[in-house]
Each structure stands twice: as structure tokens, then as C-alpha cells.
Amino acid sequence: MVVGKSAGLFGGAPANVRVRAPGKINVSFRVGPLREDGYHSVASVYLAVSLYEEVTATVSEEPGTVVTVNGQGSLNLPVESIPLDATNLAARASALLAELSDHSTGLLLDITKRVPVAGGMGGGSADAAATLLACDALWNSGFSRDELAKMAAELGADVPFALIGGTAVGMGVGEQLTPAISKTPLHWVLVTSAYGLSTPEVYRALDELRLREGSEPTAPPEIDPRILGAMRSGDAQALAELLHNDLQAAALELAPDLAGILQAGTEAGALASIVSGSGPTVAFLAESEEHAQALAGQLTADGLTATAVHGPVHGARIVTDYIA
């Protein structure tokens, strides 16, 4: 979407701001026991990847926030399922910042979706992170990244990571972030589905599965330090042996067709495969950029919707603002 130049409201502040924020893969995701607050404790290794949401925030003379959504690319994005009212996570982000800003205005939020919808890659969280950054610039609020990250944590466990990007360890419910060093790119192929999975439903399925198996955990989970070592060195072969997602079995119960997708990637030569977060997006680890491109081509030829990505990449970032 191209946003035209228009006059600023507050001493040269932009009248519109465009921000990109990345989706993520949970390279490792371990789920602990249910907490008293109704959430599960988790231990996650987040990796921001080169599939970006884009949010354009524009000053409106009308009060409130109007949200529009469109999809780009060929990743089976069911954008018609996304709410456009106050329950939309980006709209909630703008409302939160408006309460704290001295210069908030009516707002138009145009969201371009590239991250799978309800796909386990944090697309809605990326929208919220992008909105926080865009509105902060739009309204000259002057909040620091740390202050925005605290606001982000109020919106959801994945929102702070979409703001900072890179690689990080997430504890608590995922919102307690510790950045990790990981500069060498890792290459992946994502296979998306035409449907989404509800994260709360996947967690419920996990609880039921553990109850049937008598395998409920009793202590908060921990991170295997070998994962961080493999990511720090960019050693895809070593990382392939360490990918783990406690939610994968539950996602497979709700969407049995994912088993065939996982098998297809193995047969096509992926180093390893994992359901991303709560699914249904499946991530295949590749040896190199060339391997990822070849793998994506093979899976596409097999009739799947596949795209090659890499990570780590930066978090939410302003890509265009127009100042009068």
C-alpha cells in the first residue's frame, strides 16, 4: 500500500507511518504445568524470520480506530477471519497507547498480512508490535523501546518478541525475554495451511493428551543450552537434532493432515521438521539458502504451499514515514 504525503499535526510529526514486524518460529517450545492464573509456564527459543507483517497508521479526523486488512503473497491467508473491531490485537495496541499518549488522534490502521493467520507464527502479535511503534511515532509519544515492550507484554506473550526480533529465550508465559546471540543466518521452508488453529484449543488438547497419558509436568520447563550453542554458531546440522515442540502432538490431534506434511518434508530432504508454535504452519530446517530454495520448490511441486525464509531478522521497524 502506498500512503500519500499529508500535513503533520504536531510540530512536524508524520501524518502516517508504516512499520514492518516479523513472524517467528519457536525453535524449541516446552510447556510446563498449568498455573493458577490459567496460563501455562513455557520455555521457548524464539527466532524472528523474514516474513513480515506491515502496518500503516494514518491520522484520522474521526475518533476511534478503523482497521482494514489485506493479504499479500500466496500463503493461503484467510484474512476474512480476522476481526476488524476493538478485539483486533492491533486495535487493542492502539487503544493502549492512546491512553498513555498526550497527542492521540483518530486512527486508520491498514494491515498487510504476510504471516499465516492463526498459523503459530505470531502474526497478530507482529501486528500489535508494529502498531505500538507506528502510533508512538505518529503521535510523538516519545516512549522508549523498553517502555513499548512493557506495553507489549500487556497485549500478549508473543508481542514483546515481535518488537525486539532477533533470537531470544522466553520464560514465564513467554513474555520474559532474554536476547540471545545468533548472527549466522539459518534457512527454513514454511508450509502453510488454508485453515488456522486456535492457540487456546491446542493448549486444551495438550492438557487432555497429558491427562490421558499420565504425563503432566510438575515443574516449570527449562531450555536446553545446546540449542543456543547451535544457533549461535549457525550449525544447522546440530540444531536439527534439537528441535522440539510440546504443542506438536496436540496440533496433530486437531489437524491429522499435518503428519503427511511433516513426512513430505522429510522425504524431500529437510534436515528436520517442526510444527511452529500452536500450528498449523510447519517449518523445515534447511542446510543453506540454496537447499531451502530447492526444498521449497520440491514441496510446491508436491502440491503444498511453501516458501523459503531465513532468520534471525530485526524486530519491528519503521520503514516509511512522511513528514510535511
Rank of each mutant, 00 (worst) to 15 (best):
G311T: 09
T87K: 10
A157G: 04
L9I: 11
L132V: 09
I82N: 00
T112W: 01
L132D: 06
G265Y: 10
T192F: 10
W188D: 05
A316K: 00
P225Q: 11
G106L: 07
P83C: 11
L97V: 05
H40V: 13
G4Q: 13
H103E: 06
T68F: 00
A249L: 14
P217R: 06
F10T: 00
L100G: 00
S94G: 11
P14F: 06
W188R: 01
A255M: 09
Q298A: 15
E99V: 00
A128S: 14
L206W: 05
T105Q: 10
G214Q: 09
G123E: 08
P280T: 10
P83H: 07
L100V: 02
N16A: 15
L177S: 06
I323H: 03
L51N: 02
Y39T: 03
G8P: 02
Y46G: 08
A308M: 14
V319I: 14
E154F: 01
G124N: 10
T68C: 00
A250K: 12
H314Q: 15
G214I: 04
V45K: 04
A180C: 13
V27I: 15
A264N: 01
T307A: 13
V191R: 05
T300K: 10
E154W: 01
I111R: 00
H103D: 09
A294I: 01
A255C: 13
D102W: 01
V42W: 03
L138T: 02
V42R: 05
A236C: 13
K24S: 14
E62F: 00
L295H: 08
P221C: 11
D146W: 09
S273M: 06
K113F: 06
E290N: 13
T320V: 12
S104N: 09
L89R: 04
G229M: 15
P200F: 12
F143E: 01
A301Q: 13
A308K: 06
L190V: 05
A153P: 00
R35N: 03
A13I: 00
A283S: 14
G142K: 07
A86S: 14
A118S: 15
L108C: 05
M1Q: 12
G277L: 02
V309L: 14
L299R: 04
P312C: 13
